[in-house]
């Protein structure tokens, strides 16, 4: 073992642990700093409970929509290419380059009462801004390409020969989709879904604007954490952060497993 590579290894470990490991550890340390009883009490905080319910609602709506959309648009772009799908292929990555604050702003411009559709929606009795639909919309926006970015390259790599073979064996399109296509992209799609879920649960800036950040009503868990922290209730904030940190650790573990499985699949392939 050369000395230079040990030095490099140590430098990297120190950097990564200081930048990433330490904050993660610190969240746990802060949340447990007042003992179990205090933690137990803080977990029963009414506002935080409502925020958790709202975040779950948003995730249950936004994630399935984006997964269906992500897989559908990937199939369309890869298997039925046209000029329109090429345009979409470019547009679909745009949300990744937009600041969450700007996402919030543009949704407000389009869907607030004074915005483009706001008045129409208001007449129909739909309230988009400062309510659940707006938060779902913002969550969908920021996580829009996370599934398709993973699935599109894989679909290209796998090719359509398996699907066409299944067709010659008498299978109908829906059967081909569920027994062939979906099976071959399963782990990659799951990886994209996990990224989507993490992004939806963790979104802050965009939701901050579209929700209006009304405590007990439109406050998601991230907003609740931010509000507690700013209102000199840092401990309560860290208890919320603890919950999200635990979710992220689960997400990380799953991402690790999924990536391992994806690599093994690729390794097994022989095309």
């Amino acid at each position: 073992m050369k000395r230079s590579s040990i030095v490099l290894r140590c430098l990297v470990l120190v950097y990564v642990m200081a930048l990433l490991g330490l904050p993660l550890f610190f969240v746990f340390q802060q949340a447990f700093s007042h003992g179990w009883a205090a933690l137990w009490a803080a977990l029963h905080d009414h506002a935080m409970g409502l925020a958790i319910v709202l975040t779950m609602k948003v995730a249950l709506l936004a994630v399935p929509l984006n997964v269906v959309f992500g897989i559908g648009v990937s199939l369309w772009i890869v298997r039925r290419p046209s000029w329109l799908s090429h345009v979409v292929d470019v547009i679909i990555d745009v949300p990744l380059a937009i600041s969450p604050i700007i996402v919030g702003l543009i949704l407000e411009l389009a869907y607030a009462q004074s915005g483009w559709f706001g008045s129409t929606f208001a007449r129909l009795g739909w309230k988009v801004m400062f309510s659940l639909p707006g938060i779902v919309l913002a969550s969908i926006f920021v996580s829009l390409p996370l599934v398709s970015r993973q699935v599109i390259p894989l679909l290209r790599e796998v090719g359509d020969h398996q699907e066409q073979t299944a067709a010659t064996l008498g299978a109908k399109p829906t059967r081909i989709f569920f027994t062939i296509t979906l099976r071959s992209i399963a782990w990659t799609a799951a990886y994209g879904v996990t990224l989507t879920l993490a992004r939806v649960i963790g979104e802050y800036g965009a939701v901050l604007i579209v929700s209006g950040n009304i405590a007990l009503v439109t406050q998601t868990l991230t907003l609740n954490i931010g509000a507690n922290f700013e209102n000199f209730n840092a401990y309560q904030g860290f208890v919320g952060a603890l919950l999200l940190a635990m979710v992220s650790v689960m997400v990380l573990v799953f991402i690790g497993v999924a990536r391992h499985r994806m690599e093994r699949k690729r390794h097994d392939s022989f095309a």
């Binding site: 990564v16 904050p23 993660l24 954490i225 931010g226 952060a241 990380l252 991402i255």
Partner: peptide
Amino acid sequence: NTIIDLPFALPTVVAGIT
């Protein structure tokens, strides 16, 4: 290798207050 992805998984607000 796993912890490298932490910033993708950890909400920004959690990182912010930490």
